[in-house]
Amino acid sequence: MEKRVVFRSAWLPYALLAPQIAITIIFFFWPAFQAGYFSFLLQDAFGLKTEFVGLQNFVELFNDEHYLKSFKITAHFSALVAFSGIAISLLLATMADRVLRGALAYKTLLIWPYAVAPAVAGVLWAFLFAPSIGVFTYALKQFGVDWNWALQGDQAMLLVVIASVWKQVSYNFLFFLAGLQSIPKSLIEAAAIDGASPLRRFWTVVFPLLSPVTFFLLVVNIVYAFFDTFGVIDATTEGGPAGATQILVYKVYHDGVKAGDLGGSSAQSVVLMAIVIALTVAQFRFIERKVQY
């Protein structure tokens, strides 16, 4: 797609692009290049000497059981966040699409968590589930559940999943609602006239038509779980207990900033970049295909 009518100037377009390109080079390309470069270096304990070690950082990384465990945890975490977030918001959006009265009020009351910072969402849920004083902890105790996420890995994982999903539901909800409202009513009516029940209509007509939105949200939610949940985790479990909630991006931060392992952390950054690139390509491939329809 190109414009037929254009302006001519030898310098103006460059001047207009300059700020964006300058920031991109200084804060995106240069650091990304350095991350790549650092990943081939090994620094001694005092930071006095660095030597070129080739792929050794990567080899060590993939032989490190902590790193492999972190991979597994990330997969587990993002599957839980993406799946439950999508399921809950699809349910709410389907219901919101059905009601006529109070639709705007429902929508308004459901979208505000989008505005909450992940770190704040983490603090809120950590407070509700606080081992000694939390309201939910107290309620669970009445049912005989011993709740202490500071000690038990599964519970810590559950806590960060709940906080992450809570924040993301509103985003998914808006996309599903927009998707549902763009489905032609005549299709649903035709199915209803043929005698299909609401549930059957949902699974055979509505859900297949929503599949592009669902796929898009799946990618977005995985990206969200991979990167944006850093705040949730840092504000609650800090990757603990015993690394039970240490997702990849938290490990990059922990190893690089807290433990000062420059080479190892950079190698992890490079691996993460590869994952983001794969996810972005998947997303765009899919969008291209949708455009051809």
Partner: peptide, 25 residues
């Protein structure tokens, strides 16, 4: 070329290049 240069920044969220960006700043 410039368009693609802006495009690929989508693939470099701040989380994956923490330390080098910190160093630049």
């Amino acid at each position: 070329f410039f368009f693609w240069m802006i495009f690929v920044t989508l693939m470099l969220p701040v989380e994956v290049r923490i330390i080098p960006t910190f160093k630049v700043v």
